[in-house]
């Protein structure tokens, strides 16, 4: 297998349906994101069921630290009252973190297992869902819908329309205002999704390149890049969460 083939193979997806068509689905992205979502829910739901007001131990302690951390972030930047924002932020943070961290698993291990199990040497398996733009866009578009929903819910349809058409330059620049506003609103989910996707995709690409090095030197770059990646993983999950909170907070506020 040549280097370019190897790289190309690692950038592919296990796809159901015709490649390149909208009516196809990335099985690996879906499977691993749902699996990691289930891991997240399993851990947190179990802790929530066993939660006590006494001295917290083990998993409860960890879960409470996460909850408190997210709750603090929400309290710091979100001034409205909503039951959805904090659980949403928690889900985003932990889920994205889990989806990112599977990147640190040995790079060829799971794809190789999949090839052996399926008996098909050309099968694709990308275990890192956040390096699929569909996954990140899916989350950020859901957040985008929430932003629109809350904008209309809090300010009313009239208030929302006023904000879209009359800000920031007043009534004489009405179409210009609207275009500006639409770009601003669209930029939110797109930047959210592409920031995460770009980071993870590029990180994966570099892992692929490192994997092309001779085996006895791989650990030098591999180790340092993995450690660096660990920071990026946490940071990207955190950024996604905080920006979501900020955007939703902006949607709640009258300017």
């Amino acid at each position: 297998m040549t280097a370019s083939e190897y790289i190309k193979h690692h950038l592919g997806h296990m796809t159901l349906g015709e490649k390149g068509s909208f009516w196809s689905i990335h099985l690996d992205t879906m499977f691993f994101s749902i699996l990691l979502g289930a891991v997240f829910l399993f851990i947190f739901y179990r802790a929530a069921k066993r939660v006590t007001t006494g001295v917290p131990t083990g998993m409860q302690n960890f879960v409470e630290i996460m909850v408190e951390f997210v709750d603090q972030q929400v309290k710091d930047s979100f001034h409205g009252r909503s039951k959805v924002i904090a659980p949403l932020a928690l889900t985003l943070f932990v889920w994205i973190f889990l989806m990112n961290i599977v990147k640190l698993l040995p790079y060829d291990l799971l794809p190789r297992i999949a090839q052996i199990v399926s008996g098909n040497p050309d099968i694709y398996l990308r275990i890192n869902p956040t390096s699929d733009v569909n996954a990140t866009l899916g989350m950020s578009i859901a957040v985008f819908f929430l932003i629109i929903f809350y904008s209309i819910y809090i300010k009313g349809a009239g208030g929302f329309a006023k904000e879209m058409f009359l800000k920031p330059f007043g009534v004489w620049f009405l179409p210009f205002n609207f275009v500006l506003k639409v770009v601003e609103e669209i930029a939110k989910p797109v930047s959210l999704a592409l920031r995460l996707f770009g980071n993870m995709y590029a990180g994966g690409l570099i892992f692929t390149l490192i994997a092309l090095l001779p085996w006895w030197i791989q650990w030098t770059l591999g180790l340092s890049w993995s450690l660096f990646k660990l920071l990026i993983i946490t940071l990207q999950a955190f950024i996604f969460m905080v920006l979501t909170i900020v955007y939703l907070s902006m949607a709640h506020e009258d300017h």
Binding site: T15, G17, S21, F22, W23, S24, I25, H26, T29, M30, S33, I34, G37, F40, L41, V84, P87, L88, T91, W95, P129, D132, V133, N134, A135, L137, G138, M139, I141, A142
Partner: peptide, 16 residues
């Protein structure tokens, strides 16, 4: 971009 996007949105909504 393909159906994965919708699948991801649904998964996300359910998780939340």
């Amino acid at each position: 971009i393909n159906l994965t996007l919708l699948g991801q949105m649904i998964t996300f909504a359910l998780l939340v």
